[in-house]
């Protein structure tokens, strides 16, 4: 049994103008200790996916279909008390902006101890000891003084370290990191990503890394999902996707990176923009922007086709695969 199994997840936001589906038919699994990257542009639904795993969606958002099974228990239908014993304890989450995550009026120490005490029967002294250990694990300089400090006294990189330390406090099985380094500078980003990678490897923690940065994903994750307009359009081993992306959108995303173009030449752009969720086109949601659009793309939703070790939702890839098979048979 996989550690986490998301199947046919659908998330709906009920708006005055009608219900909007932010996620449609999302399915994937996560094994213990595995690192999974989730990539997509803003509005693709990657953060909603992160939130819905822990059922943290607030009104008007809700899981309207599908299930999120963690060790066999469906988190989508779990009672609030039971869910609370999993949140932060077995599955913890790291958000983009560390200033928004930390409470500005409590010291770091109080916040860390509070978190431990909420989940375990433990004395303040022992909790402080664990907090100190975790701060040392994230290579926080002078951890003892940090416990007495308030979040505003620390720099962005240090705050994110604290948030990671809090995420690790209860030795979770899964960490969901939603754009953990987007608010940080490149040199700090490299440090934090390295740290997270090491901690996950050492403690055998599974990581779901949500980001728009293909570079980060390619270096950290073993498997990746590419999302577009609320659906997974390609998933598979990171190496395979980075080296040989199948879906035209993934290819376009990769080619649009400045490092893929010859300096001074025009960048390869994907025309148009992602449609708003209220106006997702019929058929394949990428079809108006796709260079290789076929007639069938405008009417039918593509199913996943196996291509190597990857699964791709694209009619063209499916057709090409079919042709290859035919050639083989002949």
């Amino acid at each position: 049994m996989p550690l986490l199994e998301v199947s046919n997840l659908e998330v709906c936001f009920g708006l005055r103008s009608g219900a909007v589906k932010a996620l449609r038919d999302v399915s994937f699994t996560l094994e213990r200790g595995e690192r999974l990257g989730v990539v997509g542009e803003s509005g693709a639904g990657k953060s909603v996916l992160g939130f819905s795993i822990l059922n943290l969606l607030s009104r008007p958002g809700h899981i309207s279909a599908g299930s999120v099974r963690f060790e066999g228990k469906d988190l989508a239908t779990l009672a609030p008390e039971e869910l609370r014993s999993i949140r932060g304890n077995r599955i913890s989450m790291i958000f983009q902006d560390p200033m928004m995550t930390l409470n500005p009026v409590l010291t770091i120490g109080v916040q860390m101890v509070e978190c431990l005490k909420a989940h375990r029967k433990i004395s303040t002294k022992d909790a402080t000891y664990i907090a100190l250990q975790k701060l040392k694990q994230v290579q926080m300089p002078s951890p003892e003084t940090r416990l007495e400090q308030y979040p505003h006294e620390l720099s962005g990189g240090m705050r994110q370290r604290i948030v990671i330390a809090i995420g690790l406090l209860l030795d979770p099985d899964i960490i969901i990191a939603d754009e953990p380094t987007t608010a940080l500078d490149v040199t700090i980003q490299a440090e934090i990503m390295d740290l997270m990678l090491n901690l996950c490897e050492q403690n055998n923690v599974a990581l779901i890394l949500i980001t728009h940065d293909l570079g980060v994903v390619s270096q950290v994750s073993q498997r990746m999902l590419v999302m577009y307009a609320g659906r997974i359009i390609e998933q598979g081993p990171t190496k395979e996707i980075i080296n040989d992306a199948q879906h035209p959108y993934t290819q376009g995303l990769m080619n649009a990176l400045p490092q893929m173009a010859i300096p001074g030449q025009k960048l390869n752009q994907i025309k148009g923009t992602m449609p708003p969720l209220q106006r997702i086109p019929k058929g394949c949601s990428f079809n108006p922007r796709c260079e290789y659009v076929l007639e069938v793309c405008k009417h039918n939703l593509p199913a996943f086709t196996q291509s190597g070790n990857c699964q791709v939702a694209c009619h063209l890839v499916a057709e090409l695969n079919q042709e290859k098979l035919l050639v083989k048979e002949v």
């Binding site: 980003q189 490299a190 390619s218 990176l257």
Partner: peptide, 17 residues
Amino acid sequence: LMSAIPRLEDNRPDYIK
């Protein structure tokens, strides 16, 4: 700064810490 840019490469290059 240059070595810290995440690049689309197979093996993680050692960056200057």
